[in-house]
Nucleic acid binder design. Structure first.
Lengths: 183, 183
DNA sequence: TTGACGTGAGAACGTGCGTTCTCTACGTTA
DNA sequence: TAACGTAGAGAACGCACGTTCTCACGTCAA
């Protein structure tokens, strides 16, 4: 079987399991079963579990930011793009399998033990922050707003994950509107 | 030895280890060594590791909120008490052993496997939110502000933990000021 | 045909850890 | 003094899991 296809199968299985149950709660055996690959093949593609975890976070990062960008770019007016971020978050929070932010959860789980995971988490959060900074600049708003919107979004993700409700997105959007007007 | 004293010793050791290295990365053996108690005694006090984890979160919750309240109450002016929350966060983020919010981290680690931990995390976050709501009411500000300040604080905790910087507290305080004026 | 090689399936290995058990020592009480 | 209960120290147990090994089988080159 094509290596590329096998890799995607492994990552599909890993993402579903790691995100849904937590990294440490999922054994390589479960990934094997879910992916339909043999353990041998799995270890050829990812020589250790940590590699698989990092690859999972990496691929999810690309997808996550891709989807966000896609949603935001539907709005031509730069002023509307900022609330659109929170609309997208709200939609995400409402998905049936939503279980909080994969990177925040991974940091809680592995932050103290895996330097590579920490690097991955920091890279993702920095990229998201940079994305917000771009939107703020395009809307002609002061740069200081970017960090504030970022904190609102992070708070909303955490809170939505813990409480299992999508409401924090609306609260954050309201706060973002107020901050945009205030600045 | 007095049971009460032994319990405190166990919890002191557990808190230091669980918060510093993560719950799953710390074995009961490490807790035994750090506490100076025998395994037998430890299991008499906490029949399973999960009990110890829940007790750790419970005691930390009381202390954490106690310290916050103590700091906030130093200010007599209700208007100043809200920024004081973020001052306190900044001070906390700057502590040498700061490693993010214990409850958010625990949720990331155990949220999918331990219902009791989830309950504990939700209770803590709800209590913190209620505390903010009280401060907002005392300051004569609209109730809607409480949730927004809560999201800012949560975002700041997460971000400070991941980046290892205390700066998010200042950003959040600035945003909180702007929101208070805007509402 | 034959032998080398890659692959799949899963058994096996080693380790770590939560929990329990054993053994010894000591204090208490009749 | 002798019997008994309790606690400490840590060995032992059972299990889960990351990783490696075995073995049978199909494939392809010479």
């Amino acid at each position: 079987m094509d290596s590329e296809v096998a890799r995607e199968q492994a990552l599909d299985a890993a993402e579903k399991l790691f995100y849904g149950r937590g990294v440490q709660a999922v054994g390589m055996d479960a990934v094997r079963t879910a992916s339909g690959l043999s353990l041998k093949r799995l270890y050829q593609l990812f020589p250790a579990k940590e590699e698989l975890v990092v690859a999972y976070l990496e691929r999810r990062d690309l997808r996550w930011r891709g989807r966000l960008a896609e949603h935001v770019e539907r709005h031509d007016d730069p002023q509307e793009r900022i609330p659109a971020v929170f609309d997208w978050l709200e939609q995400w929070f409402g998905e049936a399998d939503f279980r909080g932010c994969a990177w925040i959860n991974s940091y809680g789980e592995l932050g103290a033990t895996s330097e590579r995971v920490v690097t991955q988490v920091r890279a993702h959060k920095r990229a998201f922050r940079d994305c917000l900074a771009g939107l703020v600049a395009d809307a002609g708003l002061p740069a200081i707003l970017a960090g504030q919107l970022f904190l609102l979004a992070e708070g909303a993700m955490v809170t939505a994950g813990i409480t299992g409700s999508a409401e924090p997105a609306a609260e954050a959007r309201e706060a973002a509107r107020a901050l945009s007007r205030a600045n």
